[in-house]
Amino acid sequence: MVLPDAASLYGKLLLAVNRPAGAAAALTEAGAQLDLRGWHNTVWAPWAGHLAIAIAEDEPERARAYARRSVVDAERFGTASAIGTALRLHAQIEDGQQAVELLERAVTHLGQSPAGYEHAVALVDLGAALRRVGRLEDAQEYLYQGIELAQHCAADGLVERARRELANYGLRPNRLGDVREALSQPEWAVAELAVRGVPPQRIAEQLGLPLSQVNYRLAAVYRKAGSGPDGLAAALGLPPAQRDGSDPVDRQSGPDTLGGGFDRAR
């Protein structure tokens, strides 16, 4: 087991409770000590990215230098989780299209890592950034993906943040007939399994699809239904089930079984 650097963690916690000046001092000291020892592992000691956020308002150029350094150190370390997290932190001190591009790269890297919570945060951050540049449909897709993953991580605060972002669209549940008609057969297939409580990874296995494609289809379902995972059964007119993932579906089932009676393919 590798424990995080205590000094870096302390600075990160100060930043989390909105004490940027204290965080900046603690993280600057932590970085100086780690540099003396030649330690640049951004997973074990993520001081540079958080220091960038702590000083961004008062020293934007210095903050960007630290954010870029964090990405370089993460790329030297080489893991997808390190690179994705560093890119996500860098995006927090940027805006507009630059923030979107950094977050798109972060989501790609974190989607290849076991860091589920960091991936969920990056998805929600990307959804919010896309909303700010006017790409509303794309924003909703990523926010719904973020909600799904955050719920699997039991990250209630992140779920609420994503829902507040979605509230900016004034989403309302659509009429049942409209929702069912709006879903393609592939979307209905993943929606039925999700309502039964099957997690995305198992949906991917059962349908023989990449996990990324399952997540994309689920996000489309949530957008069209005007509902997140908790309200999906009601939005689609399906009976709720215990969400324990214990309702396996034969991968060889035909379209009528998976598609809820759809006789067309899209």
Score class of each variant (00 low, 15 high):
5 D>L: 08
5 D>M: 10
8 S>R: 03
9 L>H: 06
11 G>V: 09
11 G>A: 09
14 L>K: 09
19 R>F: 07
21 A>F: 10
22 G>H: 05
22 G>T: 04
25 A>Q: 13
26 A>L: 06
27 L>Y: 02
28 T>D: 02
30 A>H: 00
30 A>W: 00
36 L>D: 10
36 L>P: 07
36 L>W: 03
44 W>D: 07
48 A>I: 04
50 H>A: 01
52 A>K: 03
55 I>A: 01
56 A>Y: 01
56 A>W: 01
57 E>S: 12
61 E>D: 13
61 E>V: 07
62 R>T: 08
64 R>Y: 05
64 R>L: 15
68 R>C: 07
69 R>L: 12
70 S>M: 00
71 V>C: 11
73 D>I: 00
73 D>Q: 14
73 D>M: 10
79 T>A: 12
82 A>F: 00
82 A>D: 00
83 I>Q: 06
84 G>N: 05
86 A>Y: 00
87 L>D: 02
91 A>Q: 02
92 Q>M: 11
93 I>N: 01
94 E>A: 12
95 D>N: 11
95 D>I: 05
97 Q>V: 14
97 Q>Y: 11
98 Q>H: 07
100 V>M: 00
101 E>Q: 15
101 E>S: 11
103 L>K: 08
104 E>I: 10
106 A>K: 02
108 T>A: 14
112 Q>W: 08
112 Q>E: 13
113 S>A: 10
114 P>M: 04
118 E>H: 14
119 H>G: 04
120 A>C: 12
122 A>W: 10
123 L>S: 02
124 V>L: 06
125 D>C: 02
126 L>Q: 01
126 L>C: 00
127 G>K: 09
128 A>D: 14
132 R>V: 05
134 G>C: 06
137 E>N: 11
141 E>A: 10
141 E>D: 15
142 Y>G: 00
143 L>R: 02
145 Q>V: 02
147 I>A: 01
147 I>G: 03
147 I>H: 02
149 L>D: 08
155 A>E: 02
156 D>G: 06
156 D>S: 09
165 E>Q: 12
167 A>P: 07
168 N>D: 13
169 Y>C: 02
172 R>C: 04
173 P>Y: 03
174 N>R: 15
174 N>I: 04
174 N>G: 15
175 R>V: 11
175 R>D: 13
181 E>W: 11
183 L>A: 08
183 L>G: 03
187 E>Y: 09
190 V>R: 05
191 A>P: 12
191 A>M: 10
191 A>I: 10
192 E>C: 03
193 L>C: 02
195 V>E: 01
197 G>I: 04
198 V>S: 03
198 V>P: 01
203 I>H: 01
205 E>N: 10
206 Q>D: 11
206 Q>H: 05
207 L>Y: 05
211 L>E: 15
213 Q>V: 09
213 Q>Y: 08
214 V>H: 07
214 V>W: 07
215 N>K: 13
215 N>P: 02
217 R>W: 13
219 A>K: 04
225 A>Q: 05
226 G>R: 07
226 G>K: 04
228 G>S: 03
228 G>N: 08
234 A>Q: 12
236 L>D: 04
239 P>M: 10
240 P>V: 13
242 Q>A: 14
243 R>G: 14
246 S>C: 09
247 D>G: 01
250 D>F: 12
251 R>L: 10
252 Q>T: 11
253 S>V: 00
255 P>M: 12
256 D>Y: 13
258 L>N: 01
260 G>K: 08
261 G>C: 06
261 G>P: 10
262 F>M: 09
263 D>I: 06
264 R>S: 15
265 A>G: 01
265 A>L: 14
